[in-house]
Amino acid sequence: MSPGGRIGPATLAAYLEHLERADRAGAVALARGLLAEGCSVADVLVDLVAVAQREIGRRWLTGSWSVAQEHAATHVSELVVDALGTAVGAPRRGHVVVACVEGEWHALAARIVSEVVRAAGWRVTFLGASVPARHLVSYLHQTGPDAVLLSCVQPNRLVRAARMVEASRAAGVPVLAGGPGFGPEGRWATAIGAAAWGASARDAVRLLSGPLPAGTHTGPPPPPADDAYVAVLHRRRELVRLALAAVDVPEEAAEDVASGIAHLVDALIATARVDDDRLLLDFLGWQEEALTARGGRRLLDDVLAALERALAEHPRVAARLRNARAAVATG
């Protein structure tokens, strides 16, 4: 809640109603009105738009909203972020680059961070959703910013995030990580070489204004704790193929299942990278809901078993898979 309590449950409900009706003008007017009443850009974006976005995600997950409704509502919030961005003055601090990890298309949270950081006086370049590591590197060498803010929502994208962190460090730019993809309280952020992790846009401003926590934040990243990581990473496509061949799915569901398996293999690789089984278990807990409709636990167990067989020569990785199977079996 913002100081003065202007953004309370009633305001949130009104805003969500605008989103539900995809009412752009109404949503923008509500946000502008809050600014006029004395709320800061950060207050409106963090306490209203970001909170509403979590609610949208919940409604989509529980099936009360369709994908189209979710997209339309998100789009309205993006327009609100746009409208508020123009209210920010000239930059008086350094330059930061905000990017979503490659493959991540949910850019609203990163855009909110961009605007809140901009409102705090920084020059901000938002590179957009799903930024290829190559583009990021070329941009960093061209502009030499003070920091990269990297957003990652899903932990199975952590391997790609690690590649982007590595690229930024190699270009001499420290990375601040943000988003639930870096684990509970961001516990996996430093394992892949990020300087620090923030849970919200306000954290990002706080981290940028103080010196970064001790440690070296550029140069080669910390090595993976599990040396099977590289081997598994190289066999990624082969593993997806093997696991897909081991399950029996109707043709029309094959594509969905294949992409689910690819995500699972990515999560496994990320687990080896950060050496924490919690990543795989959390991912499966979340995946299970999505997979229940298409064969559920049985299918998941078949996939895990196939991967375990294929990776028998890497005892630590195989053990992670055995663990995961046990967790899935007991629910």
Partner: peptide
């Protein structure tokens, strides 16, 4: 050597 080799940006 390794730190100076990182960046291709003049200011940095």
């Amino acid at each position: 050597g390794s730190r100076l080799g990182l960046s291709l940006h003049r200011e940095q």
